[in-house]
Structures are given as C-alpha cells and as structure tokens.
C-alpha cells in the first residue's frame, strides 16, 4: 500500500534522515530537557569525530573495500596530535602527512596485488596500534590549544557539532556526488572494468579514495583530542565498528559504489544519539552493546522492507 504513495527509492534515500529524526523525537520525548542548545551540544559532542571516521570508511566502501583499521588509525592520530603536534608542530604535521600517504599506499598495495582489503587493513590495524603505543606508551599528552578552542566553539543559535556536521556533509557530498571526477571515483566502485576501459587509472582512484580515508581519519583523530584534550592509543578502538555501522545506517551498500556522504554523516549522528538515548532509558550497561546491535538490526530491517517494495 505504502509503495503506491511513496517512491521506494526516495523513501530509501530518506531513511537515514528519517531514523535520525525518529530517534531525536524519542529523546526529546523521554528527556525534554535535552531540547536545548546545551543539551544537544552535550549529546552530539562526539558526533564530529565519529562522522569524520564514518566518511573515511565510506570512501573505502565506495571502491568496494572495507577498512578494519580506521579505529586504531584514529587512535594513532590522537597520540601524534597529543605529543608531536603539541611539542614540535612541524614534525607533527609531517608525521600526519606521512600517515595519509601510508593510507594511499595501502590502497595501492590492495589494488596492485589484488588483495582482500579486510586482511590488509586488519594487518595495518596492528601496525597503527603498535606505532601509537610507541608514540604514547601511557595515556596522556596534551592537545594543541587551537584544537581545543575549535571543538569548544560557541556558535550562536545552533550548537557547534550540528554546524560542523552540516558543513562536512555538504562539502563531501558536492565533491563526491556532483564533481566530474567524483563520478569517476564512484564509477570505479560500480564497474571498475568499464572505468579502466574508458582509459582511467584504477590505481589512481584507489589511492585517492584511500588517501581521502586517511585524510578524514586524521581529521577525526584531531577533532577527537580537541574534545578529550589528551591522547591514548586505544582511544578510538571502537571507531572501526562505529564507522562501519554509521556508513550502513547512512545507506551505503557494500558493493557497487552506491554511497551517500550526507547519509553517512546522518548515520554517525544517529549512532551517537543512540548511545545517549540508551542512557536516558536507564538501560543496564550490560545491555548497552546489545541495544546498539538491536537498533542496527531494526534500521536494516526497515531498509529491507523498503527494498522489497522497490523490487516489485
């Protein structure tokens, strides 16, 4: 019945926004006090680093790969940010640039040797974590002042995390979905062979997408220490799962280059809100993870239901 009035394709692309809105309403209903500048600011604080990590994951998913190392990588960036970037800024910047290049090199390796990304990134997750432990053996360090200042920015009327999320989403969306080279990047996920036959270098697209993932991983790590003010090698271990879940909630599909940057950011926001919501509902900490799993399943079930309409 529903399909007769609503175009399933439209409904599906609206699903990330819809689930975000529903969750927001549910939170406002259970905790009306959150419906304020400071309430939203508090709840969505960590949405910025998670959204950036989710976008990083999305770039990799676009070219039909999966990045299981983004969490430890964000942790490494946080460690470098809280040590070298604070003490010797120039060296810190060079190290971060090196990290991005390593990410692009990882993409090149995956492409050139035709390797499964899951295994390569799994291996790299050890490497990132190892370097992070060497850089900062125990939690600590200090985040540069400008990062702290940026992340605690007070924007009039609309809380900073929301402004930041909108800016990030729009910039990436325009770059990937509307630019002429963005088409090639997405095409490389949809039908790599066809893109290669039209004379494009798949090595280049792969390196660019992994390089972008590295760049957004760096942004994620820096924004994270802007909030925590200190670093820890394990600070972002969960980000791997968050980023995958966020990208999926945001409507990304695992193969075929079908992704949506706006959706990914919304997915990350939804994920962040879900954590707060569970605390408001006084869900026992034992069941927190379980409840997150349940939310993920619920959203996916909705998507399956809509897709079923689409097939008909």
């Amino acid at each position: 019945m529903l399909q007769r009035f609503v175009n399933p394709r439209l409904l599906r692309s609206a699903l990330p926004a819809l689930s975000f809105a529903i969750l927001l309403v549910a939170i406002f209903y259970t905790q009306p006090r959150t419906m304020s500048y400071f309430g939203l600011n508090l709840m969505l604080q960590y949405a910025v680093p998670i959204a950036l990590a989710t976008l990083a994951q999305m770039f990799v998913i676009t070219v039909n790969d999966l990045d299981l190392s983004i969490g430890p990588f964000v942790g490494l960036v946080a460690c470098i940010g809280a040590t070298f970037l604070y003490e010797t800024p120039l060296l810190g910047i060079l190290m971060l640039l090196g990290c991005i290049l390593l990410y692009a090199a990882m993409g090149a390796l995956i492409h050139l040797r035709n390797l499964p990304s899951i295994v390569v990134t799994l291996g790299m997750s050890f490497v990132w974590l190892g370097i992070a432990v060497l850089v900062l053996p125990t939690p600590g360090g200090k985040a540069p002042e400008y990062l702290k200042a940026l992340m605690s920015l007070q924007v009039p009327l609309v809380p900073f995390p929301i402004v930041a999320a909108i800016v990030i989403a729009v910039v990436v969306h325009v770059a990937l979905m509307y630019s002429s080279y963005g088409v090639v990047l997405r095409g490389a996920g949809g039908n790599p062979r066809a893109v290669a036959r039209a004379g494009w270098s798949l090595l280049k697209t792969k390196m660019i997408m992994f390089g972008l993932a590295g760049f957004f991983g760096v942004l994620s790590g820096l924004s994270l220490i802007g909030l925590t003010t200190s670093g820890d090698a394990h600070i972002a271990d969960r980000y791997t799962l968050y980023s995958i879940a966020g990208a999926i909630l945001g409507g990304a599909e695992f193969v075929g280059g079908r992704v949506s940057p706006v959706g990914a950011v919304l997915g990350a926001l939804t994920l962040t809100l879900a954590g707060s919501f569970l605390i408001f509902l006084r869900v026992s900490p034992d069941w927190q993870i379980g409840a997150q799993g349940a939310i993920l399943i619920l959203v996916l079930a909705l998507r399956a239901l809509i897709s079923r309409g689409e097939v008909r």
């Binding site: 088409v183 090639v184 997405r186 095409g187 949809g190 039908n191 039209a198 075929g256 280059g257």
Partner: peptide, 14 residues
C-alpha cells in the same frame, strides 16, 4: 561496460 550505480549522463562523462 556501464557503471550501474551511475546515471546515463554520468556514464557518458566516464
């Protein structure tokens, strides 16, 4: 050799 995730016009761009 078309990319199924892209539009007809975007495939022309490729």
């Amino acid at each position: 050799s078309l990319c199924p995730n892209l539009t007809v016009a975007e495939n022309a761009r490729i």
